[in-house]
Simulated assay, not measured.
Amino acid sequence: MADAESDLGLHPAWSLLSWTSSFLMVFGGAVPYIPQYRHIQRSGNAEGFSTRVCLLMLLASILRLFFWFGKHFELTLLWQSIVLIFTMLALLNLCCAVQQSSRMSTSRHFFTDFDPKYFWAWSRFLDYIQFCLAFTVLCLFVTYLLIDSQLYVETLGFLAVLIEAMLGVPQLFRNFKNKSTAGMSVKMVLLWTVGDIFKTTYFITNAAPVQFWVCGTVQICIDIAIFLQVFIYGQGEHEKYI
């Protein structure tokens, strides 16, 4: 009887914990970008943020959506991808607005120019939307043809998480090239790291497909490398962003 009462007492607490962790998984991925968004908005300068991060996150999230159609993993992870897509588009929209207001050159570049030299360096937010739509339609067509192929579905999943695992690489190389992390928020890097640790733990405890926790482990390593750059290149330049 005591054991039964104990189980009944634990059940609501476990349900609350499960609901809270799912909520954090859906919206927690967007949280690290809030300080960066506010910093760009306040400073009117997007130079310290690599929009290639948005590119990788958009590609990974869109691919993950199609991976779900072939392998129905937890809905929480599906909603997480949708929230991240809107988060990345919001960041891109802000970066485009900031760059337009500070652009001195009259030259403009568009997605429909199909010029590889200016890929992901277009002049309007609309061009980024057009690219995302074109990529989505391509994925839809290929997935429709190969949805019954287990090899395709598993490869799609690994491709999605591999791209996501490389999320911090553009920022890592940008910092290394400039020998500086000026323009980045230390708070953002900390949130990135804590978020990826939580995310990977969630993947493992909820028995998510192997692709997910492999991705999370790689992301944690990259986050730690970026965090170390803060101290290698000087922590003082970040104090004003905290």
Rank of each mutant, 00 (worst) to 15 (best):
I204E: 01
T106G: 10
Y241V: 01
M188A: 15
A60D: 11
N178D: 06
M57R: 13
L159W: 12
G28M: 13
Q235N: 05
S101F: 05
I34P: 02
S101H: 07
S43G: 01
I220E: 04
A207Y: 05
T200H: 00
S18K: 11
L133C: 08
L92K: 03
E74Q: 12
L145P: 01
M166I: 07
D7R: 15
G44V: 06
Q80M: 14
L63N: 13
T106K: 11
F173S: 11
R42T: 10
F69Q: 13
T20Q: 04
D3Q: 09
F86I: 10
Q99F: 00
C215M: 15
M184A: 09
V210A: 05
L126R: 14
P170Q: 04
G157I: 06
I204M: 00
L138E: 01
Q171I: 10
Y144H: 12
L228M: 07
L146N: 03
A13R: 13
T193K: 03
F212S: 11
E47D: 15
H238R: 01
I62C: 05
N93L: 05
T76I: 12
L167Q: 06
G183A: 01
F69T: 15
T155N: 05
G183D: 01
L65I: 15
G29H: 07
I85G: 12
T143C: 09
L140M: 09
L56R: 08
F158Y: 15
I147W: 06
F231T: 15
C221K: 06
A165L: 04
M88F: 10
Q219I: 08
V230H: 07
I147C: 02
W79V: 00
I224D: 08
H39F: 03
Q80K: 12
F110P: 00
F69R: 09
D7M: 10
A160Q: 08
G29D: 10
A30S: 15
T136R: 04
F110W: 12
A30H: 06
Q41A: 09
F119H: 11
V53P: 07
